[in-house]
Design a binder for these strands. Structure first.
Lengths: 207, 207
DNA sequence: ATAATATATGACTATAAAGTCACATTCAAA
DNA sequence: TTTGAATGTGACTTTATAGTCATATATTAT
Protein backbone atom coordinates (compact mmCIF):
# COMPACT_ATOMS: atom_id res chain seq x y z
CA UNK A 1 0.00 0.00 0.00
CA UNK A 2 1.50 3.34 -1.02
CA UNK A 3 2.02 5.93 1.68
CA UNK A 4 -0.43 8.82 1.92
CA UNK A 5 2.22 11.18 0.55
CA UNK A 6 2.08 9.38 -2.78
CA UNK A 7 -1.69 9.48 -2.91
CA UNK A 8 -1.64 13.24 -2.32
CA UNK A 9 0.64 13.78 -5.33
CA UNK A 10 -0.99 15.15 -8.45
CA UNK A 11 -2.16 12.43 -10.83
CA UNK A 12 0.40 13.32 -13.46
CA UNK A 13 3.34 12.76 -11.13
CA UNK A 14 1.87 9.55 -9.76
CA UNK A 15 1.53 8.19 -13.25
CA UNK A 16 5.06 9.25 -14.16
CA UNK A 17 6.43 7.27 -11.23
CA UNK A 18 4.32 4.19 -11.93
CA UNK A 19 5.02 4.15 -15.65
CA UNK A 20 8.72 4.47 -14.99
CA UNK A 21 8.56 1.59 -12.52
CA UNK A 22 6.58 -0.56 -14.93
CA UNK A 23 9.09 0.17 -17.67
CA UNK A 24 12.02 -0.86 -15.51
CA UNK A 25 10.37 -3.95 -14.00
CA UNK A 26 9.41 -4.91 -17.48
CA UNK A 27 12.92 -4.59 -18.82
CA UNK A 28 14.78 -6.29 -15.98
CA UNK A 29 12.37 -8.22 -13.82
CA UNK A 30 11.84 -7.50 -10.14
CA UNK A 31 15.24 -8.29 -8.65
CA UNK A 32 17.39 -6.68 -11.30
CA UNK A 33 15.46 -3.46 -11.27
CA UNK A 34 17.17 -0.67 -9.34
CA UNK A 35 15.07 1.78 -7.39
CA UNK A 36 17.54 4.44 -8.46
CA UNK A 37 16.71 3.84 -12.11
CA UNK A 38 13.01 4.05 -11.47
CA UNK A 39 13.56 7.32 -9.65
CA UNK A 40 15.74 8.69 -12.43
CA UNK A 41 13.19 7.66 -15.04
CA UNK A 42 10.47 9.51 -13.17
CA UNK A 43 12.68 12.52 -12.57
CA UNK A 44 12.71 12.26 -8.79
CA UNK A 45 15.32 11.29 -6.20
CA UNK A 46 15.75 7.80 -4.85
CA UNK A 47 14.71 8.94 -1.39
CA UNK A 48 11.40 10.14 -2.76
CA UNK A 49 10.43 6.66 -3.82
CA UNK A 50 10.70 5.68 -0.17
CA UNK A 51 8.46 8.60 0.76
CA UNK A 52 5.88 7.10 -1.56
CA UNK A 53 6.17 3.39 -0.90
CA UNK A 54 7.19 1.12 1.96
CA UNK A 55 9.68 -0.77 -0.15
CA UNK A 56 10.35 -2.19 -3.58
CA UNK A 57 7.78 -4.94 -3.20
CA UNK A 58 5.12 -2.46 -2.14
CA UNK A 59 5.84 -0.43 -5.27
CA UNK A 60 5.69 -3.53 -7.46
CA UNK A 61 2.36 -4.60 -6.08
CA UNK A 62 0.93 -1.14 -6.55
CA UNK A 63 2.13 -1.18 -10.15
CA UNK A 64 0.31 -4.45 -10.62
CA UNK A 65 -2.94 -3.14 -9.19
CA UNK A 66 -2.72 0.14 -11.04
CA UNK A 67 -1.86 -1.56 -14.31
CA UNK A 68 -4.63 -4.06 -13.94
CA UNK A 69 -7.18 -1.33 -13.26
CA UNK A 70 -6.07 0.70 -16.29
CA UNK A 71 -6.07 -2.38 -18.49
CA UNK A 72 -9.51 -3.47 -17.37
CA UNK A 73 -10.92 -0.04 -17.99
CA UNK A 74 -9.54 -0.12 -21.52
CA UNK A 75 -10.88 -3.60 -22.06
CA UNK A 76 -14.24 -2.55 -20.72
CA UNK A 77 -14.94 -0.52 -23.81
CA UNK A 78 -14.51 -3.75 -25.68
CA UNK A 79 -16.87 -5.90 -23.65
CA UNK A 80 -19.33 -8.00 -25.62
CA UNK A 81 -22.91 -6.80 -25.57
CA UNK A 82 -25.51 -9.03 -23.99
CA UNK A 83 -26.66 -10.65 -27.22
CA UNK A 84 -23.42 -10.55 -29.19
CA UNK A 85 -22.38 -13.55 -31.18
CA UNK A 86 -18.83 -14.89 -30.75
CA UNK A 87 -18.14 -14.48 -34.46
CA UNK A 88 -19.25 -10.86 -34.46
CA UNK A 89 -16.95 -10.33 -31.52
CA UNK A 90 -13.91 -11.86 -33.19
CA UNK A 91 -14.63 -10.03 -36.43
CA UNK A 92 -13.58 -6.85 -34.66
CA UNK A 93 -10.32 -8.21 -33.27
CA UNK A 94 -8.38 -5.48 -35.03
CA UNK A 95 -9.89 -2.83 -32.77
CA UNK A 96 -8.91 -4.84 -29.73
CA UNK A 97 -5.37 -5.23 -30.98
CA UNK A 98 -5.11 -1.50 -31.55
CA UNK A 99 -6.41 -0.72 -28.08
CA UNK A 100 -3.92 -3.11 -26.57
CA UNK A 101 -1.11 -1.85 -28.75
CA UNK A 102 -1.46 1.59 -27.16
CA UNK A 103 -0.63 -0.03 -23.85
CA UNK A 104 1.99 -2.50 -24.94
CA UNK A 105 4.33 -1.75 -22.03
CA UNK A 106 1.53 -2.28 -19.60
CA UNK A 107 0.49 -5.53 -21.19
CA UNK A 108 4.03 -6.85 -21.27
CA UNK A 109 4.33 -5.99 -17.59
CA UNK A 110 1.08 -7.69 -16.68
CA UNK A 111 1.99 -10.86 -18.45
CA UNK A 112 5.48 -11.00 -16.98
CA UNK A 113 3.94 -10.47 -13.57
CA UNK A 114 2.53 -13.96 -13.62
CA UNK A 115 6.08 -15.29 -13.57
CA UNK A 116 7.35 -13.32 -10.59
CA UNK A 117 7.18 -15.77 -7.71
CA UNK A 118 5.40 -14.56 -4.59
CA UNK A 119 4.60 -11.03 -5.66
CA UNK A 120 1.31 -10.28 -7.28
CA UNK A 121 -0.24 -13.65 -8.02
CA UNK A 122 -3.37 -12.60 -6.20
CA UNK A 123 -3.90 -9.56 -8.42
CA UNK A 124 -3.50 -11.67 -11.52
CA UNK A 125 -6.47 -13.93 -10.99
CA UNK A 126 -8.80 -11.05 -11.79
CA UNK A 127 -7.23 -10.39 -15.14
CA UNK A 128 -7.75 -13.81 -16.64
CA UNK A 129 -11.18 -14.00 -15.12
CA UNK A 130 -12.46 -11.03 -17.10
CA UNK A 131 -11.34 -12.49 -20.41
CA UNK A 132 -12.84 -15.82 -19.45
CA UNK A 133 -16.16 -14.27 -18.53
CA UNK A 134 -16.39 -12.54 -21.89
CA UNK A 135 -15.87 -15.81 -23.72
CA UNK A 136 -18.35 -17.66 -21.52
CA UNK A 137 -21.01 -15.05 -22.20
CA UNK A 138 -20.29 -15.10 -25.93
CA UNK A 139 -20.56 -18.88 -26.04
CA UNK A 140 -23.90 -18.77 -24.25
CA UNK A 141 -25.21 -16.10 -26.64
CA UNK A 142 -23.97 -18.01 -29.66
CA UNK A 143 -25.42 -21.33 -28.57
CA UNK A 144 -28.75 -19.60 -28.05
CA UNK A 145 -28.60 -18.06 -31.51
CA UNK A 146 -27.45 -21.33 -33.05
CA UNK A 147 -24.16 -20.06 -34.47
CA UNK A 148 -22.21 -22.40 -32.19
CA UNK A 149 -23.02 -26.09 -31.90
CA UNK A 150 -24.74 -27.16 -28.70
CA UNK A 151 -23.34 -30.70 -28.37
CA UNK A 152 -19.94 -29.67 -27.02
CA UNK A 153 -19.30 -28.79 -23.37
CA UNK A 154 -18.97 -25.08 -22.65
CA UNK A 155 -15.69 -25.72 -20.88
CA UNK A 156 -14.17 -27.33 -23.97
CA UNK A 157 -15.48 -24.61 -26.23
CA UNK A 158 -13.98 -22.02 -23.94
CA UNK A 159 -10.53 -23.61 -24.01
CA UNK A 160 -10.76 -24.07 -27.75
CA UNK A 161 -11.62 -20.43 -28.43
CA UNK A 162 -9.13 -19.03 -25.96
CA UNK A 163 -6.37 -21.27 -27.30
CA UNK A 164 -6.86 -20.07 -30.86
CA UNK A 165 -7.53 -16.42 -30.19
CA UNK A 166 -4.71 -15.95 -27.68
CA UNK A 167 -2.27 -17.39 -30.14
CA UNK A 168 -3.41 -15.24 -33.02
CA UNK A 169 -3.72 -12.09 -30.93
CA UNK A 170 -0.15 -12.50 -29.77
CA UNK A 171 0.98 -13.04 -33.34
CA UNK A 172 -0.82 -10.01 -34.63
CA UNK A 173 0.08 -7.81 -31.73
CA UNK A 174 3.78 -8.45 -32.27
CA UNK A 175 3.37 -7.05 -35.77
CA UNK A 176 2.19 -3.74 -34.38
CA UNK A 177 4.82 -3.37 -31.69
CA UNK A 178 7.40 -1.83 -33.99
CA UNK A 179 5.16 0.96 -35.25
CA UNK A 180 4.90 3.93 -32.98
CA UNK A 181 1.84 5.52 -34.55
CA UNK A 182 1.20 5.25 -38.28
CA UNK A 183 0.35 1.71 -39.30
CA UNK A 184 0.76 0.78 -42.97
CA UNK A 185 -2.60 -0.27 -44.43
CA UNK A 186 -1.22 -3.54 -45.79
CA UNK A 187 -0.56 -4.54 -42.18
CA UNK A 188 -4.25 -4.25 -41.39
CA UNK A 189 -5.23 -6.04 -44.57
CA UNK A 190 -2.89 -8.89 -43.71
CA UNK A 191 -4.40 -9.30 -40.27
CA UNK A 192 -7.93 -9.18 -41.68
CA UNK A 193 -7.04 -11.85 -44.19
CA UNK A 194 -5.58 -14.11 -41.53
CA UNK A 195 -8.54 -13.47 -39.28
CA UNK A 196 -10.87 -14.56 -42.06
CA UNK A 197 -8.98 -17.81 -42.46
CA UNK A 198 -9.00 -18.39 -38.72
CA UNK A 199 -12.77 -17.87 -38.55
CA UNK A 200 -13.23 -20.12 -41.55
CA UNK A 201 -11.43 -22.92 -39.70
CA UNK A 202 -13.54 -22.41 -36.60
CA UNK A 203 -16.74 -22.44 -38.61
CA UNK A 204 -16.16 -25.21 -41.09
CA UNK A 205 -13.45 -27.30 -39.52
CA UNK A 206 -11.19 -29.96 -41.04
CA UNK A 207 -8.24 -28.12 -39.55
CA UNK B 1 30.87 -23.60 -19.86
CA UNK B 2 31.41 -25.83 -16.81
CA UNK B 3 34.97 -26.35 -15.62
CA UNK B 4 36.69 -29.65 -16.41
CA UNK B 5 36.37 -30.67 -12.78
CA UNK B 6 32.61 -30.83 -13.16
CA UNK B 7 32.78 -32.83 -16.35
CA UNK B 8 35.03 -35.38 -14.65
CA UNK B 9 32.48 -35.96 -11.90
CA UNK B 10 30.47 -39.16 -12.13
CA UNK B 11 27.20 -38.69 -14.01
CA UNK B 12 25.09 -39.25 -10.92
CA UNK B 13 26.68 -36.37 -9.03
CA UNK B 14 26.52 -34.09 -12.04
CA UNK B 15 22.83 -34.73 -12.37
CA UNK B 16 22.24 -34.17 -8.65
CA UNK B 17 23.83 -30.73 -8.91
CA UNK B 18 21.95 -29.76 -12.06
CA UNK B 19 18.60 -31.00 -10.85
CA UNK B 20 19.05 -29.13 -7.60
CA UNK B 21 19.94 -25.98 -9.50
CA UNK B 22 16.95 -26.38 -11.81
CA UNK B 23 14.68 -26.87 -8.82
CA UNK B 24 15.90 -23.70 -7.16
CA UNK B 25 15.94 -21.55 -10.29
CA UNK B 26 12.47 -22.78 -10.95
CA UNK B 27 11.19 -21.88 -7.52
CA UNK B 28 12.79 -18.45 -7.22
CA UNK B 29 13.98 -17.24 -10.58
CA UNK B 30 17.61 -16.47 -11.35
CA UNK B 31 18.31 -13.54 -9.04
CA UNK B 32 16.56 -14.83 -5.94
CA UNK B 33 18.23 -18.22 -6.12
CA UNK B 34 21.08 -18.64 -3.66
CA UNK B 35 24.07 -20.69 -4.68
CA UNK B 36 24.17 -21.93 -1.10
CA UNK B 37 20.73 -23.47 -1.48
CA UNK B 38 21.66 -25.18 -4.70
CA UNK B 39 24.74 -26.61 -2.99
CA UNK B 40 22.74 -27.75 0.03
CA UNK B 41 20.16 -29.38 -2.23
CA UNK B 42 22.86 -31.30 -4.03
CA UNK B 43 24.61 -32.23 -0.80
CA UNK B 44 27.84 -30.36 -1.57
CA UNK B 45 29.50 -27.24 -0.20
CA UNK B 46 29.03 -23.82 -1.69
CA UNK B 47 32.69 -23.67 -2.66
CA UNK B 48 32.29 -26.80 -4.73
CA UNK B 49 29.82 -25.12 -7.02
CA UNK B 50 32.60 -22.69 -7.89
CA UNK B 51 34.92 -25.60 -8.60
CA UNK B 52 32.36 -26.74 -11.13
CA UNK B 53 31.22 -23.50 -12.76
CA UNK B 54 32.63 -20.05 -13.44
CA UNK B 55 29.72 -18.30 -11.79
CA UNK B 56 25.98 -18.38 -11.30
CA UNK B 57 25.24 -17.41 -14.87
CA UNK B 58 27.50 -20.15 -16.19
CA UNK B 59 25.62 -22.67 -14.07
CA UNK B 60 22.28 -21.35 -15.29
CA UNK B 61 23.22 -21.59 -18.92
CA UNK B 62 24.51 -25.10 -18.45
CA UNK B 63 21.22 -26.05 -16.81
CA UNK B 64 19.41 -24.67 -19.83
CA UNK B 65 21.51 -26.66 -22.27
CA UNK B 66 21.38 -29.81 -20.22
CA UNK B 67 17.63 -29.53 -19.72
CA UNK B 68 17.01 -28.84 -23.34
CA UNK B 69 19.03 -31.87 -24.41
CA UNK B 70 17.22 -34.15 -21.97
CA UNK B 71 13.85 -32.78 -23.02
CA UNK B 72 14.56 -33.16 -26.71
CA UNK B 73 15.70 -36.70 -26.23
CA UNK B 74 12.44 -37.51 -24.45
CA UNK B 75 10.45 -35.76 -27.13
CA UNK B 76 12.35 -37.59 -29.81
CA UNK B 77 10.60 -40.83 -28.96
CA UNK B 78 7.41 -38.98 -29.72
CA UNK B 79 8.33 -37.59 -33.12
CA UNK B 80 5.75 -38.07 -35.87
CA UNK B 81 6.61 -40.67 -38.47
CA UNK B 82 7.10 -39.52 -42.04
CA UNK B 83 3.58 -40.32 -43.20
CA UNK B 84 1.67 -39.70 -39.98
CA UNK B 85 -1.57 -37.82 -40.07
CA UNK B 86 -2.07 -34.91 -37.67
CA UNK B 87 -5.17 -36.55 -36.20
CA UNK B 88 -3.35 -39.81 -35.54
CA UNK B 89 -0.67 -37.81 -33.82
CA UNK B 90 -3.06 -35.95 -31.55
CA UNK B 91 -4.97 -39.11 -30.75
CA UNK B 92 -1.97 -40.22 -28.73
CA UNK B 93 -1.63 -37.01 -26.74
CA UNK B 94 -1.99 -38.91 -23.48
CA UNK B 95 1.35 -40.61 -24.00
CA UNK B 96 2.98 -37.27 -24.61
CA UNK B 97 1.45 -35.81 -21.46
CA UNK B 98 2.74 -38.75 -19.44
CA UNK B 99 6.24 -38.40 -20.82
CA UNK B 100 6.24 -34.72 -20.03
CA UNK B 101 4.73 -35.25 -16.62
CA UNK B 102 7.79 -37.28 -15.63
CA UNK B 103 9.86 -34.19 -16.26
CA UNK B 104 7.55 -31.54 -14.94
CA UNK B 105 10.30 -29.65 -13.08
CA UNK B 106 12.40 -29.58 -16.18
CA UNK B 107 9.56 -28.33 -18.33
CA UNK B 108 8.64 -25.63 -15.86
CA UNK B 109 12.27 -24.54 -15.85
CA UNK B 110 12.51 -24.46 -19.61
CA UNK B 111 9.41 -22.38 -19.99
CA UNK B 112 10.42 -19.90 -17.27
CA UNK B 113 13.79 -19.61 -18.97
CA UNK B 114 12.25 -17.66 -21.82
CA UNK B 115 11.45 -14.88 -19.37
CA UNK B 116 14.91 -14.47 -17.87
CA UNK B 117 16.34 -11.49 -19.70
CA UNK B 118 19.78 -11.95 -21.21
CA UNK B 119 20.50 -15.46 -20.06
CA UNK B 120 19.62 -18.36 -22.27
CA UNK B 121 17.53 -16.92 -25.06
CA UNK B 122 19.81 -18.48 -27.60
CA UNK B 123 19.27 -21.97 -26.24
CA UNK B 124 15.52 -21.50 -26.33
CA UNK B 125 15.10 -21.03 -30.03
CA UNK B 126 15.83 -24.71 -30.61
CA UNK B 127 13.08 -25.85 -28.31
CA UNK B 128 10.18 -24.16 -30.05
CA UNK B 129 11.60 -25.00 -33.40
CA UNK B 130 11.34 -28.72 -32.80
CA UNK B 131 7.66 -28.53 -31.87
CA UNK B 132 7.01 -26.31 -34.87
CA UNK B 133 8.76 -28.66 -37.25
CA UNK B 134 6.65 -31.57 -36.04
CA UNK B 135 3.46 -29.66 -36.74
CA UNK B 136 4.66 -28.46 -40.12
CA UNK B 137 5.48 -32.01 -41.17
CA UNK B 138 2.15 -33.30 -39.89
CA UNK B 139 0.26 -30.63 -41.79
CA UNK B 140 2.09 -31.51 -45.00
CA UNK B 141 1.36 -35.22 -44.50
CA UNK B 142 -2.27 -34.53 -43.73
CA UNK B 143 -2.82 -32.23 -46.70
CA UNK B 144 -1.31 -34.89 -48.92
CA UNK B 145 -3.61 -37.55 -47.48
CA UNK B 146 -6.59 -35.24 -47.67
CA UNK B 147 -7.46 -35.23 -43.95
CA UNK B 148 -6.71 -31.51 -43.71
CA UNK B 149 -8.16 -28.97 -46.14
CA UNK B 150 -5.78 -27.57 -48.71
CA UNK B 151 -7.26 -24.10 -49.15
CA UNK B 152 -5.81 -22.63 -45.95
CA UNK B 153 -2.22 -21.35 -45.64
CA UNK B 154 0.16 -23.65 -43.82
CA UNK B 155 1.17 -20.81 -41.54
CA UNK B 156 -2.41 -20.25 -40.40
CA UNK B 157 -3.00 -23.95 -39.91
CA UNK B 158 0.15 -24.15 -37.84
CA UNK B 159 -0.89 -21.32 -35.53
CA UNK B 160 -4.37 -22.76 -35.26
CA UNK B 161 -3.16 -26.23 -34.27
CA UNK B 162 -0.49 -24.99 -31.90
CA UNK B 163 -2.92 -22.59 -30.24
CA UNK B 164 -5.44 -25.31 -29.51
CA UNK B 165 -3.07 -28.10 -28.55
CA UNK B 166 -0.83 -25.97 -26.34
CA UNK B 167 -3.85 -24.81 -24.41
CA UNK B 168 -5.26 -28.28 -23.93
CA UNK B 169 -1.91 -29.86 -23.15
CA UNK B 170 -1.32 -27.32 -20.43
CA UNK B 171 -4.78 -27.96 -19.03
CA UNK B 172 -4.34 -31.71 -19.02
CA UNK B 173 -0.80 -31.63 -17.74
CA UNK B 174 -1.85 -29.62 -14.71
CA UNK B 175 -4.22 -32.45 -13.81
CA UNK B 176 -1.32 -34.88 -13.59
CA UNK B 177 1.01 -32.68 -11.58
CA UNK B 178 -0.44 -33.69 -8.22
CA UNK B 179 -0.02 -37.39 -8.74
CA UNK B 180 3.43 -38.72 -8.09
CA UNK B 181 3.03 -42.05 -9.79
CA UNK B 182 -0.32 -43.87 -9.75
CA UNK B 183 -2.88 -42.09 -11.89
CA UNK B 184 -6.56 -42.86 -11.28
CA UNK B 185 -8.11 -44.33 -14.43
CA UNK B 186 -10.96 -41.81 -14.46
CA UNK B 187 -8.34 -39.13 -14.96
CA UNK B 188 -7.26 -40.74 -18.20
CA UNK B 189 -10.84 -41.28 -19.31
CA UNK B 190 -11.60 -37.63 -18.67
CA UNK B 191 -8.69 -36.49 -20.79
CA UNK B 192 -9.63 -38.90 -23.58
CA UNK B 193 -13.17 -37.60 -23.56
CA UNK B 194 -12.01 -33.99 -23.77
CA UNK B 195 -9.55 -34.88 -26.48
CA UNK B 196 -12.35 -36.44 -28.50
CA UNK B 197 -14.38 -33.23 -28.26
CA UNK B 198 -11.38 -31.15 -29.20
CA UNK B 199 -10.73 -33.25 -32.28
CA UNK B 200 -14.40 -33.12 -33.17
CA UNK B 201 -14.25 -29.31 -33.19
CA UNK B 202 -11.15 -29.32 -35.36
CA UNK B 203 -12.71 -31.74 -37.81
CA UNK B 204 -16.24 -30.49 -38.10
CA UNK B 205 -16.06 -26.91 -36.93
CA UNK B 206 -18.81 -24.50 -35.93
CA UNK B 207 -16.94 -23.67 -32.77
C1' DA C 1 54.61 -45.72 1.30
C1' DT C 2 55.24 -41.22 -0.67
C1' DA C 3 54.59 -37.63 -3.57
C1' DA C 4 51.80 -35.21 -6.63
C1' DT C 5 47.44 -33.94 -8.20
C1' DA C 6 42.57 -33.28 -7.94
C1' DT C 7 38.57 -32.36 -5.23
C1' DA C 8 35.95 -30.54 -1.13
C1' DT C 9 34.99 -27.17 2.31
C1' DG C 10 33.18 -23.11 4.82
C1' DA C 11 34.98 -18.93 7.01
C1' DC C 12 36.02 -14.80 4.86
C1' DT C 13 35.88 -10.61 1.57
C1' DA C 14 34.00 -7.64 -1.83
C1' DT C 15 30.22 -5.42 -3.70
C1' DA C 16 26.00 -3.78 -5.15
C1' DA C 17 21.85 -2.16 -4.16
C1' DA C 18 18.08 -1.69 -0.62
C1' DG C 19 16.69 1.21 2.69
C1' DT C 20 17.62 5.42 6.20
C1' DC C 21 17.94 9.99 7.71
C1' DA C 22 19.46 14.68 8.64
C1' DC C 23 19.00 18.52 6.20
C1' DA C 24 17.06 21.51 2.28
C1' DT C 25 13.25 23.19 -0.14
C1' DT C 26 8.50 24.15 -1.12
C1' DC C 27 3.86 25.08 0.17
C1' DA C 28 -0.09 26.64 2.86
C1' DA C 29 -2.14 28.94 6.59
C1' DA C 30 -2.65 32.90 9.62
C1' DT D 1 6.22 37.46 6.02
C1' DT D 2 6.50 34.26 9.45
C1' DT D 3 5.86 29.69 10.85
C1' DG D 4 4.73 24.91 10.74
C1' DA D 5 3.95 21.05 7.98
C1' DA D 6 4.70 18.39 3.89
C1' DT D 7 7.75 17.05 0.40
C1' DG D 8 12.34 16.36 -1.80
C1' DT D 9 17.16 14.90 -1.70
C1' DG D 10 21.48 12.22 -1.98
C1' DA D 11 25.32 10.92 1.13
C1' DC D 12 25.50 7.31 4.27
C1' DT D 13 24.49 2.64 6.61
C1' DT D 14 23.01 -1.94 6.37
C1' DT D 15 22.40 -6.24 4.42
C1' DA D 16 22.51 -10.10 1.60
C1' DT D 17 24.92 -13.03 -1.08
C1' DA D 18 28.17 -13.75 -4.96
C1' DG D 19 32.49 -15.13 -5.36
C1' DT D 20 37.49 -16.25 -3.10
C1' DC D 21 40.92 -18.85 -0.95
C1' DA D 22 43.73 -21.18 2.51
C1' DT D 23 43.37 -25.51 4.21
C1' DA D 24 41.78 -30.36 4.51
C1' DT D 25 40.76 -34.60 2.38
C1' DA D 26 40.67 -37.94 -1.23
C1' DT D 27 42.61 -40.05 -5.31
C1' DT D 28 46.09 -41.53 -8.45
C1' DA D 29 50.66 -42.41 -10.04
C1' DT D 30 55.31 -44.16 -9.10
Amino acid sequence: MPKKTFLRLDAEKQERVIRSAIGEFNKNGFERTRIEDIAAGAGVAKGSIYQYFEDKKDLYIYCAEWGLAVFMKKLDGYAPTSDMDIFEYFADTLTKIRVMQEEKDLIAFLSLMTQEPGLAEASMAGMYQVGDEYIVRLIANSKRKGSVRRDIDDEILKEYFIGITDRFERRWMSRYLDFSREIPPEQNEMVQKELAQMLELIKNGRG
